[in-house]
Design a protein around this nucleic acid. Structure first.
Lengths: 337, 337
DNA sequence: TGTTAGCACTCTAATCTGTCGAGTGCTAAT
DNA sequence: ATTAGCACTCGACAGATTAGAGTGCTAACA
């Protein structure tokens, strides 16, 4: 792969990213002022196709980048993108609009990302069962119900209404709360299992059905609690010309509804460089995402870590997307709230 | 509108709801064994069109119901739908799958509704600022931060991380928590305003910046907190033949992203009968929803009220949809968890 | 008088046809 | 090594044609 081929491949990809149309030799020469004739370009294109970096939708059409072409572009050609003043402005504006809750509310963050990239944004809060229980609280609500609030060491809060058996008064509830706190405080989630709970139950002297209920809650709410996934900007996909087909879109949206699958995608990736992984088309490993690409990055917010993904067409503006991510990461790590 | 016209209108609507194709006189006779010839039907259809209940996509096509036709059907023709055993089964299955969290987790409920109706489900938790503060809790997290948890009388829980100024120890935090509880407990949200907070602040003897932070939190988190809207089943729309057009779908999805607008739709409606409102096509009042219908119902869950909406094509299975809603309402009011 | 058979007419959707143009690969000249 | 020239390919587009479903009207009928 000599320098000229790189140049041409780059030009083709840039062009295709903008236009979404197969690019031919003549148009390429016209738009990019390369000092070569269409014929030469044609030869080079034929070579690039043979090498697997380009493909032709049909014989008499221009070339479009293959997944391998994008991969090469991303790995070896693409240069850092510096946000334009307009983009910075927009970003600042959106940050201001999101206000204080940006780093605490994944939805706000997802919205921001989708708005700024115009792709689909995904935010996953890692299911991090090294967390320990910091505090458990029981707050009576009515005579027959109370709220159980559980605070974890990462600052996240879970809560659930539980019913109080007849005849159990505030005093007993208080005693129970104290007992539970003593017994579970400081224990890592991954170490909580039925055996532990069973042992604790044996120790307790008061109302058993109540302690049962709370332990059940702990088990089901905390341990089985699925990792949360927030998404925004799904409609952005409908603006891309390659997704004008309802059936295609439906398959993609259906897949997006299966949170577990998406969360799996966003897990750590061996190829990750600088905490950033890019999966292109078939690399994603999902039939319906063949024409998509996914950029995944981990992010340190003020009080916790999140994984974030940008899902767009394979014809994605990789450099710019990564630029946005880098800028935001910088913003948060330098104390942006 | 004589009996025969009702019959024919009913048949046409039933047919169109199933087939999504304009229905002609001949097909109608074939499918519905009315004891009349196509020619007679044609005359009646012409009448019904003149009366505004039917319309023709073009001269040589069959008829489709107009919004007014659907309205008449819903108001005067439609009969109660009794769920089939298969549907009941499916419902029970989905309820079992959702498990204990069904009535506490609007997402689960939305999922269930979308799955069972195969339309889009919307769930709004009414912004109900008659709620009062039941309990405020401060739980130290690190030396410099704590979690503030606020429990409202309807059982909902809000929480937020706050930062602790240097030199403020657990003891002071405790004192502060006690003070705040004393001062705000039992106060309705609508009565909390800056003046009240300012008065309270004047009373407090301890660290002022901390109490400030908490009051700010109360003001911004609780009072400015937008009503929550949960949605599920958006992809279901893509299965309907009238939404094979990406542009149409995009407009609908865009509108659905504007929560305030949707929440407004789901507010009480004068036409509501039996806590159930049906808005058909243009009645919804949104350009993009012209081909949709919306069924809105209020729902008493174990511990609170929610408003729920089913959004489908105008060609919606009204009777069945309402059947599902009624059944579920019954289920919850008879103590289904 | 209400119902129906028959018929001419209308309009869409689908299919076919021919043309245009962008693009290619190959060859021979530079 | 590069490029001009040329024959060829294939999809997109625009008409033209056809098939079919459906209508409205009229006249016959019970």
């Amino acid at each position: 792969m000599d320098e000229r081929k790189r140049l041409i491949l780059n030009a083709i990809i840039q062009d295709y990213i903008c236009s979404a149309e197969p690019v031919g030799s003549r148009t390429l020469v016209k738009r990019h002022r390369i000092g070569l004739s269409p014929a030469t370009i044609r030869n080079e294109m034929a070579d690039l196709e043979e090498m697997g970096y380009l493909q032709q939708p049909h014989t008499s059409a221009g070339r479009i980048p293959s997944p391998r072409g994008y991969r090469f572009y991303v790995n070896s050609i693409m240069e850092d993108y510096i946000l334009t003043p307009a983009e910075l402005n927009k970003m600042e504006e959106l940050i201001a609009a999101a206000g204080i809750s940006l780093s605490h509310n994944p939805r706000q963050l997802a919205k921001l990302l989708a708005a700024v990239t115009s792709y689909i944004s995904l935010i996953a809060e890692p299911a991090d069962n090294v967390q320990e229980i910091r505090h458990i609280n029981l707050i009576p609500l009515t005579v027959a119900s109370a709220i159980c609030i559980i605070v974890l060491s990462d600052g996240s809060v879970k809560h659930h209404t539980i019913s109080i058996p007849e005849g159990v008064g505030p005093r007993e509830i208080d005693a129970l709360a104290k007992f539970i706190n003593r017994s579970l405080q400081g224990i890592q989630l991954k170490n909580i299992n039925s055996r532990l709970l069973w042992e604790l139950k044996a120790e307790f002297a008061g109302n058993l059905s109540l302690v049962d209920e709370i332990y059940n809650l702990v088990r089901h709410q905390l341990l089985a609690d699925a990792q949360e996934l927030v998404m925004d900007g799904a409609t952005n996909l409908l603006n891309e010309p390659e997704f004008r087909d309802v059936d295609k879109v439906r398959e993609i949206f259906k897949t997006l509804e299966q949170n577990e699958q998406i969360l799996k995608l966003m897990e750590a990736d061996p190829r990750r460089i600088e905490d950033l992984a890019i999966k292109i088309g078939p690399e994603i490993g999902l039939e319906s995402f063949t024409d998509c690409s996914l950029v995944v990055a981990t992010f340190n917010l003020t009080d916790r870590k999140v994984t974030l993904g940008i899902l767009g067409p394979s014809r994605m503006q990789y450099a710019k997307t990564i630029g946005f991510i880098r800028w935001l990461r910088e913003y948060f790590s330098s104390g942006g709230s």
